[in-house]
Design a binder for these strands. Structure first.
Lengths: 137, 137
DNA sequence: AATATTAGTTTGATACTCAAAATACTTGAA
DNA sequence: TTCAAGTATTTTGAGTATCAAACTAATATT
């Protein structure tokens, strides 16, 4: 019985995060897909198209147009691969880095907000629980 | 310092849930938007276009085409509103109910999976923590 | 050297999204 | 009651996202 309630709460949390994320992204003038691309390149650093497409869960065809648009917005750039002339490395421009950091800060602020009334103890326990959950699926 | 790590874990959880959800939805032959519509109508019951659009966070123009497609798939239907002839109530068909229940079960299974190595105590504490988080933003 | 494989782009088609205009109906005020 | 204003939904026009399949160029294999 309890599991039903828990499931409901998890879904509610997911939906709320989702809505929050969409709001923040929209304010930044990017689409969700574009933001996701910036996030991954920001975290991974210079990365090949193919690899990036895999991490995003899209085809390289989809990624090509997406990277085109982000390049137009001056947020990232294609750098020729040194040893493989078929390939590029995608990396953030300075402006892209800015956007990435900004978004990162938004996340930090949200996390602080969520933890507002948690004691040190509770916060730690919550973190441990999440890590356990992450290992389970 | 700790907050950064926690933020990272929360993002990881969110991304993982997102990927999971996308996979499940894709298998069901629906798009994410279509699934979301089914979910809300499933939870809310008969609902007006305008209200549904608001809950989905899209314009009514967007919803019109989306509902058209779901109607073609026989998952929901437009029922004329009794007292206001401009308006419809959107409701699930039997087939739509099936899809909704199926998805619901997937969620329950995932929750069980996530809780696999949690004691009764831990699970309860985790649930309480999530509810606290939900109140904070 | 010839063939197979790989990285990325292009193409054609469908879906999602919005803002703005259009349609049909309801409501409120003269 | 009638007519103007407001509301619910649909339609239209334009941009983005997405995929599968075809294509190009370069690398790897045999």
């Amino acid at each position: 019985m309890e599991i039903k309630e828990l499931s409901k709460s998890i879904i509610e949390l997911y939906e709320k995060l989702s809505t929050w994320e969409e709001g923040v992204v929209k304010d930044s003038g990017l689409t969700t897909a574009q933001n996701h691309t910036i996030e991954i390149v920001g975290h991974e650093g210079a990365i090949k198209m193919k690899e990036l497409a895999t991490k995003l869960g899209v085809t390289t065809g989809t990624l090509t147009v997406s990277v085109d648009r982000l390049e137009q917005k001056m947020l990232l750039r294609r750098v020729p691969h040194k040893s493989d002339r078929r390939s590029y490395l995608i990396e953030l421009t300075d402006k892209g880095q800015e956007v990435f950091k900004m978004h990162h800060n938004h996340h930090l602020n949200l996390t602080r907000e969520m933890m507002a009334d948690f004691s040190e103890q509770e916060q730690l326990a919550f973190h441990v629980a999440i890590k356990k959950v992450l290992n389970n699926f």
